[in-house]
Nucleic acid binder design. Structure first.
Length: 481
RNA sequence: AGCGGGGUGGAGCAGUAGUAGCUCGUCAGGCUCAUAACCUGAAGGUCGCGGGUGCAAAUCCCGCCCCCGCAACCA
């Protein structure tokens, strides 16, 4: 059976800070799915990258006295390192919104929306704090005043911007939702976006005056404006496929109106952008919608939102340096909910590491291979993941932790079996019976290793190699005190 | 105001009507192949509060309390 074409993408992190654990969660979840599909024989296109335009980046670059391009180059390199650090799919595609092709694609996308009559100039009202000399959004204000300068009145300023006719797409969006019961997962997020769209939509601004903020993609046919950052950023999901020139590749992976094929991963803060705004933009440009959007929760730290001022930020790189890539991947898959918010503390991480990985998987591998290397002369064939479809249901519903629970249940069974059969004793008193037991244990271990591959590719490889060599491997997960 | 999520033994979670389950931790016993790992058993919960429907409710309905997030042009 020929594999299917499979497309999935993460959101692109905005490069005004170092990679944090929340993005690690998103991309590891995506990577598990991508690896699983690949192992099942599908033709996979897996996209991530960096979102590099906009006023925040522009200001930060100026603050650091750097050219914005140089500033984003440095950050893009940091995010690119995640591929090695997190053990990501080798053919992962990494797009940057400053890539020349992306700029061309974004302009083409704009033109198509404009031709559809969905882009028009309107007056955009901004709230401006004279003290900060900055525009403010409502959420930055307290009682309509700037919290930093509560004595000053907020000024209202007006400028002419391009707007996207979001309101026009209320009905089409609701129809899309009605026709596609699995469009957004989990269902409570789907309900949330249905309610939001059902309540009515306002057109939104999609450009900024170049004289105020030049760091972005020029609006086609108007030298005075640049695109507002996320209008251009969203387009990466199709520009990464070579759209608009490479029509065959685009249809192969993004799909068609009749058969949409793209899976998107995003955090709950991105629900509106991905499930409503981006879908409206696609409709406007005459492109197929996304097939499905998975919305994950946030990782909190000690019950609170992570923030630099609280000093509770979890740095994935630090964890990887101490515990290794697969330990982090395991924790994200097993102990972090794919849908709800989850708390992450180093205490819990270490606990899970010691009990599940050191005492569980690592120890089981050591005890079985120690015996098999002494008493067995043949080793079992390593099975193919395609022939072991027991985790399929968990991966297709994104219940990663259930997949882990299932595999750890199998490990616990083997630990119990060794004790109950007293394999370590039988192997000395009754060679034939002992060998038979060991052979079974090794076969079971090989299956577990293969099933682990999408989640913990490096560990999976170490175990299968140890089985083939019939040699006890180096300590996979040394206990941490 | 509104919207969404949550409140289950010490900790983290599962459980959408029919004897309350898992992991970690704690305590007791066992084993020795293994990373002082592994196995068995035990203690520990009036399932946030109050009311209702049902033969039966953590699970459905109503009211209330508490925690977290969102509240659109901020990715």
């Amino acid at each position: 059976m020929a594999g299917k074409n499979f497309y999935l993408t993460t959101t692109l992190p905005y490069v005004n800070a170092d990679p944090h654990i929340g993005f690690a969660l998103e991309i590891v979840q995506a990577d598990i799915v991508a690896r699983y599909r690949r192992l099942m024989g599908d033709d996979v296109f897996f996209n991530t990258g960096t979102d590099e335009h906009g006023v925040k980046i522009y200001r930060k670059a100026l603050d650091e006295d750097k050219d914005p391009q140089i500033y984003v180059n440095e950050y893009a390199a940091k995010f690119r390192r995640l591929k090695q650090l997190l053990g990501l799919y080798p053919d992962l595609y990494f797009i940057r919104t400053t890539d020349p092709h992306h700029r061309v694609a974004a302009q083409e996308f704009w033109k198509r929306c404009a031709e559809a009559g969905d882009i028009e100039k309107k007056i955009y009202k901004t709230k401006y704090c004279i003290g900060c000399e900055l525009e403010k959004t409502d959420s930055e204000l307290i009682d309509s005043r700037c919290p930093i300068h509560p004595n000053l009145e907020i000024e209202f300023r007006e400028e002419e911007n391009y707007f996207f006719k979001f309101s026009k797409y209320q009905k089409p969006l609701l129809e899309l939702y009605a026709n596609r019961p699995d469009f957004v997962i989990p269902d409570f997020r789907f309900n949330e976006i249905k309610k939001f769209v059902g309540a009515g939509l306002e057109d939104f601004s999609i450009s900024r005056l170049k004289e105020k903020m030049p760091w972005g993609i020029p609006v086609p046919g108007d030298e005075d404006h640049i695109m507002f950052v996320w209008f251009d950023a969203l387009i990466n999901y199709v520009s990464t496929l070579g759209w608009p020139e490479d029509r065959p590749k685009f249809e192969q992976f993004w799909g068609t109106v009749e058969n949409p094929n793209a899976l998107q991963m995003a955090g709950k803060d991105n629900l509106r952008q991905q499930a409503a705004m981006w879908q409206a933009m696609l409709m406007s440009a005459g492109l197929p919608p996304t097939k499905q959007i998975l919305i994950h929760g946030f990782i909190t730290s000690g019950g609170q939102k992570m923030s630099k001022s609280l000093g509770n930020v979890i740095d994935p790189v630090v964890i990887i340096e101490e515990y290794g890539t697969d330990a982090l991947r395991y924790f994200l898959a097993r102990h972090v909910s794919p849908f709800e918010d989850s708390d992450f503390t180093m205490e819990r991480f270490k606990e899970a590491y010691n009990s599940d990985l050191a005492n569980g998987l690592g120890n089981l591998v050591a005890r079985i291979l120690q015996m098999s290397s002494r008493y067995l002369t043949t080793t079992p064939k390593i099975p193919d993941l395609k022939d072991l479809n027991e985790i399929q249901k968990f991966v297709t519903t994104f219940e990663f932790s259930q997949a882990m629970v299932h595999l750890w249940f199998r490990m616990k069974y083997l630990d119990g079996l060794i004790q109950e059969q007293r394999t370590f004793e039988v192997v000395k008193t009754n060679r034939i019976a002992g060998k038979k037991q060991l052979k079974y244990l090794l076969e079971q271990l090989a299956e577990i290793a293969v099933l682990l591959e999408p989640f913990m590719p490096d560990t999976s490889k170490k175990i299968t190699e140890a089985i083939i060599a019939n040699k006890k491997p180096e300590n996979l997960f040394p206990r941490k005190e």
